[in-house]
């Protein structure tokens, strides 16, 4: 791994670990990530026994060369965006560890686990109440939204 920047080294390490020991229902597109370490696609299966059983989703992770000090930009992409009170129809996710509470000790794996658990604890499939307004006016990058986290029950 000589000649790599610290962020590339860290990402390479994370990629290997995610390949070898992926959390249940999670898999990373290794070929794509190896072509460009700064942009990954992660496939995620809805957990059996939850509202998302049988569905599959795609998450896009974008990193900067300041990773892991800068949080990754994480969005759902593709034609199946989970219908969930914290997921906007454009794929943006309202989750504090993706902005305010990000720590360099977190990882792609811990973000995936948090999103799996966020989906699994959902009791009613619905979009956020301000979905229409947000989707129309937000920035393309969810990290540019000043999120206001006020409900930790879901």
């Amino acid at each position: 791994m000589a000649g790599m920047s610290p962020s590339e080294r860290r990402l390479q390490k994370e990629l290997m670990s995610l390949m070898k020991e992926p959390p249940p229902g999670v898999s990373v597109d290794v070929d794509l990530a190896e072509q460009n370490l700064l942009q990954w696609i992660v496939h995620m299966e809805g957990v059996a026994g939850t509202l998302y059983e049988g569905e599959s989703f795609q998450l896009q992770f974008k990193f900067t060369n300041k990773y892991p000090f800068d949080s990754p930009e994480v969005t759902f992409i593709g034609n199946n965006i989970p219908v969930h009170p914290h997921v906007y129809s454009n794929g943006h996710i309202c989750l504090s560890i993706l902005t305010d509470d990000w720590s360099p000790a977190l990882s792609v794996q811990s973000v995936c686990l948090s999103i799996v658990s966020m989906l699994s604890s959902c009791k009613e499939k619905k979009r956020p109440s301000d979905n229409a307004f947000y989707v129309k006016t937000c920035s393309k990058n969810p990290k540019k939204t000043k999120w206001w986290y006020h409900d930790d029950s879901v």
Partner: peptide
């Protein structure tokens, strides 16, 4: 790990301010 995830509210006109 338990994170605060939450419905996020925007007051009218606030988004462009973000």
């Amino acid at each position: 790990k338990f994170e605060l995830s939450g419905e996020q509210t925007h007051q009218e006109g606030q988004i462009n301010q973000d």
